[in-house]
Design a protein around this nucleic acid. Sequence first.
DNA 1: GTCTATAGCGCGATAGAC
DNA 2: GTCTATCGCGCTATAGAC
Lengths: 195, 195
Amino acid sequence: MAVAMGTDTKTAILDAAQALLQTRGANGISYQHISDTVKIRKASIHYHFPTKHKLIEAVLRRYCVNFLGLVDAIIASDDPAPVKLRKYIGLFDRTLRNGAGQKVCLCGMLGAELASLRSPTVTLLQRFYRENALRLEKILEEGRKRGMLRFDGEAKTVGMLVFSLLEGAMLLARADGGVKRFRRLTSQLLRMVGA
Amino acid sequence: MAVAMGTDTKTAILDAAQALLQTRGANGISYQHISDTVKIRKASIHYHFPTKHKLIEAVLRRYCVNFLGLVDAIIASDDPAPVKLRKYIGLFDRTLRNGAGQKVCLCGMLGAELASLRSPTVTLLQRFYRENALRLEKILEEGRKRGMLRFDGEAKTVGMLVFSLLEGAMLLARADGGVKRFRRLTSQLLRMVGA
DNA sequence: GTCTATAGCGCGATAGAC
DNA sequence: GTCTATCGCGCTATAGAC
């Protein structure tokens, strides 16, 4: 038996931990919370992830790979830049929708709790921010060159701005306005970059 | 003796709690942290604020009043709209600077921890967001009418966008780029509303 | 109004049986 | 790999002396 597909315990723990992290944050969850979701005793979680820090790091690492993979797929397509941008925004929109308006981007959440995180996790977070800004820069610059986007200033700066807005809008949408508000903001953003 | 000015214990606790909340969040601090800062035993804090929730609520209430007061002063001045906008952004910039790059807006932080907060605190948070967006709308609309700002779309939506960006940019700036990055983003934002 | 002492609980983590 | 049991600690909150 190579892999016990689907019901892999490690994956189930990562899934539960990620969902909890996206709603309550690192300081707001415990092994007990995870144990309540996955049908496993809290002590057993330590077999798969010896410490809480290691667990968070593992969740974050998987999240980054998955997310950036989706972004790269969007970039690799031959959609025009405005569509790529819409699809990119759709990744955040989906999180808000799937989480019943209670989840935010994992990296936005952990960014708020930065002071409680350890070095490998902080480094991963920084890389995630940079990689996203970089990919947005690419989309924006390409779109502008081909005349399908229109904005002043460096694409790099606008890329960071778009990313920062998405993280901020997600956070605030949860408290007030929900997905509807989030969409109004992202539509306005698209307008401001000429999409 | 009416008031023991300056060294009011209650105020000292609020100050310490606010600073800690802005760096570590509600779930990241304890009465012990506050006790380490203010020279008072942790049990004594309960005399002034019976529960942690009440303490957080009190910090938030004071923060909202102070912040919105500053915003109203900016609006009441006869500066042109672009200057008002710059001054408004300056409020966030100052927090980032004064906190040695470790503090974010209290309401951005608590927004991330929304799921751990109780009803009166959540309501205050929502009000803070709305009041800020409302005031930004006012500045933006006035600036556009007088031809000193230029942007497409509803001033209300752009107001929410500006506020969301500031909260998001602050959060991310702490992890990567600091005040310098924050300023690059806000300069770009001003450019995008024609300031 | 501040203190010491402590109740009572939940936490992360470990030991050792199965 | 998962369990039960438990350690040791930090937390919020309370009781009662001063």
